[in-house]
Simulated scan of single mutants.
Amino acid sequence: MTTARRISGTTIAAHAVLMTYTVIALFPVFVILINSFKTRRAIFRDPLGLPNEETFSLIGYQTVFRQGDFVLYFQNSMIVTVVSLTLILLFGAMAAFALAEYRFKGNTLMGLYLALGIMIPIRIGTVAILEMMVSTGLVNTLVALILVYTAQGLPLAVFILSEFMRGVSDDLKNAGRMDGLSEYQIFWRLVLPLVRPAMATVAVFNMIPIWNDLWFPLILAPAEEVKTLTLGSQVFIGQFVTDWNAVLSALSMAILPVMVLYVIFSRQLIRGITSGAVK
């Protein structure tokens, strides 16, 4: 009874802390949204005020759709993000299962090697990556961004998923083997459903850096037909003049997919974050 109360109290506390951080994190989003529906003068005069009859304006959204191919930018960002996340979760889960399930010579070293990507930022190798993409003819393609983001997200995915997979009952997996399940079936049918909270956590943590990244799209895919949403929004930011209405409108629309993903995976995300605290 005491243990159950302690677990329940820990879960409630984790939920409260997460909700507090969510409110704090959403406040800048709220400010961006309300200012995207205001005139330029109202943005600077009263940035925290809600739009009213005098200050309400859609000029920013009109400018976004008139001057830039926003639909194409949005489509490119969606393709890059969805494909990258799919590859990260697939290959990360497979590598994590191998490290957690099988004991072989060099297992620890392999785990440390895969975890090095967490400590060493991939941007350090920008020049080498660019040379590699040029030599393979992948510059100004979405494939280049997908490959880079997949490599960027795999270390964290392997690190998180391997810890969760080590917690899966060996008796359950051995029972599956006795029932004639192959290792692939054990992976797909037994292990993956049990680590869905960890998968959701990895997906959310990787989506935000991929969706909001400006560096690699600017270096590897600056062409108009493959611009991502973040890079395409920079057209409204000039050296001397910035169209703040358009910038805030573009950012407001760019935020929506992240918010939708968070709402969809919020329950699994909370389970993934709090599971280690209630063991």
Score class of each variant (00 low, 15 high):
Arg66Thr: 13
Ala221Asp: 00
Ser169Val: 01
Thr11Ile: 13
Asp46His: 14
Trp244Gly: 05
Ile122Thr: 05
Ile124Lys: 02
Gly153Lys: 04
Arg196Glu: 13
Ile7Tyr: 14
Pro217Glu: 02
Phe91Ile: 10
Gly106Ser: 01
Thr228Asn: 03
Lys105Val: 13
Leu214Gly: 07
Asp46Pro: 07
Ile124Trp: 15
Gln239Lys: 09
Gly137Leu: 00
Lys279Tyr: 14
Phe30Val: 12
Tyr262Val: 06
Phe159Gln: 02
Ser252Cys: 05
Arg40His: 13
Glu224Arg: 01
Leu154Ile: 15
Ser252Asn: 06
Ala157Gln: 00
Phe30Trp: 15
Asn174Phe: 14
Ile32Thr: 06
Tyr21Ala: 07
Pro222Val: 10
Met199Ser: 06
Leu190Cys: 09
Thr242Phe: 10
Tyr262His: 12
Trp215Tyr: 12
Asn212Trp: 08
Trp188Arg: 00
Ile264Tyr: 14
Leu58Arg: 01
Ala128Asp: 12
Asn174Val: 06
Tyr149Phe: 15
Ala98Arg: 03
Ala200Asn: 06
Phe164Asn: 00
Arg189Cys: 00
Tyr149Trp: 14
Ala128Gln: 14
Asp179Pro: 04
Phe159Thr: 01
Ile124Asn: 10
Gly49Gln: 05
Ala277Met: 12
Phe236Val: 04
Ser8Tyr: 15
Ile124Cys: 02
Ile122Asn: 01
Ser8Val: 07
Leu130His: 08
Thr55Gly: 00
Met19His: 11
Arg103Trp: 13
Met19Pro: 00
Phe91Gly: 01
Thr242Met: 09
Ala14Tyr: 15
Thr11Glu: 13
Thr3Leu: 10
Tyr149Asn: 04
Val71Asp: 11
Ser169Lys: 08
Val226Asp: 04
Thr274Ala: 14
Leu33Ser: 06
Ile255Val: 11
Tyr73Thr: 02
Met19Asn: 09
Ile186Glu: 05
Leu181Asp: 02
Leu190Met: 13
Gly92His: 02
Ala200His: 05
Asp170Lys: 11
Met1Tyr: 14
Asp46Ile: 05
Gly117Phe: 06
Ser252Glu: 11
Thr86Phe: 15
Ile270Phe: 14
Ile210Ser: 00
Ala96Arg: 05
Phe70Val: 10
Thr86Val: 14
Thr141Pro: 01
Met132Trp: 15
Val29Gln: 07
Arg271Ile: 09
Leu218Asn: 03
Phe37Thr: 03
